[in-house]
């Protein structure tokens, strides 16, 4: 009786299993299929060999992604620490303030940065008033990275904060009692203990940064093509689904590799701590 009822309970998940085969697994099989066929459906390796043309774009995407992720980490870590030191009520308000911007369309917020950074924009008109000539900011690699940092910073703050908020404070106090000064406590105690949050923050910022396509178009002015831009054009403008599929396939594999490398790297770190 018991095993029969548990079998019946397991069957409750079957609609989801069917759904995930149809709409998660099958679409990925289509990506692979389109990557290795031409527009008439015959097997070809042309799409894969055409990829070498896009090597600089891939490298630029990864480079921008790494820089944006590191900047996010440097900004987010101290802030997460500061938030975690406040009283519970203040913490809740500050967390809400970190999340709040994400509820507004990221397209509009990125567009709004254009108005701030333009040559005739807000920063330059303020600078002009105190007699500093216009500084060219928009359409540079810096503005693209700024867009990434801006859009994905909350994804770095939140996981680090949630680990820090649950930190065992007696450990920190013990470290202080044993004569560790502030910096030593942070370096030897707080940083290693918040590593899980850092790792998930890095993934949550790196993946969308590498694959973004809107930010680079708006803040880069078209001169900093990222891999997302190329994929978007294949599907929405030149309708070359096969090339687009092979680009997506490589992007997916690259990101999986990056995460595997990072997991191994952080695995070692944890080993060192112990």
């Amino acid at each position: 009786m018991n095993s029969r009822s548990s079998l019946r309970t397991r069957l409750v998940s079957s609609p989801y299993v069917v759904w995930s085969i149809l709409f998660i697994v099958a679409p990925l099989i289509f990506v692979v299929y389109y990557s290795f066929t031409n527009s008439s459906g015959n097997f070809t390796l042309d799409n894969i060999s055409a990829l070498s043309k896009y090597t600089p774009t891939f490298l630029r995407s990864i480079w921008f992604g790494i820089v944006a992720t590191l900047i996010c980490l440097v900004i987010a870590f101290p802030l997460a620490y500061i938030i975690s030191q406040k009283t519970e009520k203040v913490q809740r308000t500050m967390v809400m303030l970190v999340m709040l911007p994400m509820w507004m369309s990221f397209l509009i917020r990125t567009y709004s940065w254009m108005a701030i950074l333009q040559d005739t924009g807000i920063i330059n008109s303020l600078l002009g008033k105190i007699g500093i000539g216009p500084i060219h900011m928009i359409n540079t690699s810096g503005s693209v990275i700024l867009g990434m940092v801006y859009n994905f910073l909350p994804y770095m703050i939140m996981p680090i904060y949630s680990v820090m908020a649950k930190l065992d404070h007696s450990m920190v106090e013990a470290a202080q009692d044993l004569g560790g000064n502030r910096l030593t406590v942070i370096r030897r105690c707080i940083i290693p203990m918040s590593m899980p949050g850092v790792v998930s923050g890095i993934t949550m910022v790196f993946v969308p940064s590498v694959s973004t396509f809107y930010i680079s178009q708006k803040l880069g002015g078209g001169s900093f093509d990222l891999i997302g831009d190329v994929i978007e054009r294949q599907f929405q403008q030149s309708y070359n689904y096969n090339l687009g599929a092979s680009l997506s396939l490589v992007l997916m594999v690259l990101i999986l590799l990056c995460m595997a490398v990072m997991n191994r790297f952080t695995g070692d770190e944890e080993g060192m701590v112990i």
Binding site: F23, I24, A26, P27, L28, F30, V31, Y34, V207, P208, V210, S211, F213, G228, I231, E232, F235, Y241, G244, A245, S248, L251, M252, I255, L256, M259
Partner: peptide, 18 residues
């Protein structure tokens, strides 16, 4: 976990192909 790990653009593109 796939839809959460995959870049959104890849999920979008794969859906479009289907």
């Amino acid at each position: 976990n796939i839809p959460m790990m995959n870049p959104e653009i890849v999920t979008g593109v794969s859906m479009m192909l289907l």
